[in-house]
Amino acid sequence: MGSEGAAEPGTVRPGGRTARVRAAVLQAAGDCLAERGFAHLDLADVARRAEVGKTTVYRRWGSVTGLVADLLADMAEQSLPRTETGTLLGDLRANARLVQRTLADPRQGALFRAVIAAATCEPKTAEALHHFYDTRVEEWAPCVRQAVDRGEVPEGTDPHEVIRAVSAPLYYRLLTTGDRLDEDAADRAAEAAAAAARAGVYVRGDGVV
């Protein structure tokens, strides 16, 4: 492990002209993951696809797991911002449809399957994946807090659990069935989470939100 003052490979956010290199490498890495999975991700192949020197890729990211960690960080940064509709159900439906569109996309769906599979046996990838989802859940959590303020759901409702409940059925379908992920599935997930939240299912015992 590096010291607090030294960043690990893949954690530095380059700016200026090097930003184009990072963008090209991350695009190539995402393509490779979607096409061939984590087990076949190779830094030399990524460098070739990105038309970047191998030494640049090895020096900046250091390893496949370092590259995947940076890819996930970039995906979290580039994700669309939260939608505000004025109602909990409307907000949760917007969230569910965003997740649905991402997972139904041939490239993005395959990419997430590959990263989730890798996270089961690669601690650094798992850490990066957890950070990605923590970032996205935190982005959408205010819609539940706003619903509490409006009186739509009980005081003490855990915003993070509500948001996780929206996407959980969609990821389950992605990973365990061959069923099509459509807007109807997204809307059902949002409606189920909203109904459970209104019923107090996600109220924390300590009342902390």
Score class of each variant (00 low, 15 high):
Cys143Ala: 14
Ala165Cys: 08
Gly207Arg: 09
Glu122Phe: 03
Thr120Ala: 09
Ala24Asn: 11
Pro159Trp: 02
Cys121Arg: 15
Val21Ser: 12
Arg93Gly: 07
Arg82Trp: 06
Lys54Val: 13
Arg136Cys: 07
Val148Arg: 06
Gly90Arg: 00
Val21Trp: 11
His130Arg: 15
Pro81Tyr: 04
Val148Tyr: 03
Arg97Glu: 10
Thr18Val: 10
Glu8Trp: 03
Ala29Gly: 12
Val12Gly: 00
Phe38Met: 07
Ile163Asn: 00
Ala94Tyr: 02
Tyr133Asn: 13
Thr83Ala: 10
Lys54Trp: 11
Phe112Glu: 08
Ala195Asp: 14
Ala6Val: 12
Ala193Met: 02
Phe132Pro: 08
Asp158His: 13
Val21Ile: 13
Pro142Arg: 02
Asp158Gly: 07
Arg101Thr: 06
Thr83Trp: 02
Gly10Asn: 06
Thr176Gly: 01
Thr11Gln: 04
Trp140Tyr: 14
Glu51Ser: 15
Ala73Trp: 05
Gly207His: 01
Asp105Tyr: 03
Ala119Phe: 05
Gly205Ser: 12
Asp45Glu: 14
Glu35Ala: 15
Ala76Pro: 03
Arg13Asp: 04
Ala185Lys: 09
His40Gln: 15
Leu103Trp: 00
Ala47Pro: 09
Glu191Phe: 14
His130Ile: 11
Asp91Asn: 11
Glu152Leu: 08
Asp105Arg: 01
His130Lys: 10
Gly156Gln: 05
Ala199Cys: 08
Glu127Cys: 04
Arg93Val: 14
Lys54Glu: 15
Arg36Leu: 10
Pro9Met: 01
Ala194Phe: 06
His40Lys: 15
Cys32Ala: 15
Arg107Cys: 08
Gly178Asp: 11
Leu98Asp: 12
Val115Gln: 01
Arg60Lys: 10
Ala96Tyr: 01
Thr18Ile: 04
Asp31Thr: 14
Val25Asp: 01
Ala94Asp: 05
Arg198Gly: 02
Ala7Pro: 04
Ala117Tyr: 00
Thr55Gly: 12
Ala96Val: 05
Asp74Ser: 12
Leu72Cys: 01
Pro106Glu: 10
Lys124Cys: 12
Asn95Phe: 14
Asp149Phe: 03
Ala118Asp: 00
Val46Tyr: 06
Gly5Asp: 02
Val166Ala: 00
Thr85Trp: 06
Ala110Arg: 13
Ala114Leu: 09
Thr120Pro: 00
Glu84Ser: 15
Leu72Asn: 01
Arg173Glu: 09
Leu111Val: 08
Arg198Met: 04
Ser79Asp: 06
Thr157His: 05
Ser63Val: 04
Leu41Lys: 05
Gly86Met: 09
Asp70Leu: 07
Ala6Lys: 06
Ala94Thr: 09
Ala165Ile: 13
Leu71Ser: 10
Asp182His: 11
Val166Gly: 01
Ala69Pro: 04
Gln78Lys: 15
Ala76Tyr: 08
Ala110Pro: 13
Pro81Ile: 07
Val57Trp: 01
His131Asp: 11
Ala96Asn: 05
Asp74Asn: 12
Pro159Ser: 02
Arg198Ala: 10
Ser79Thr: 12
Gly62Leu: 07
Asp134Phe: 11
Lys124Ala: 15
Glu77Pro: 04
Tyr171Thr: 12
Val46Met: 03
Arg164Phe: 03
Ala119Pro: 00
Thr125Ile: 10
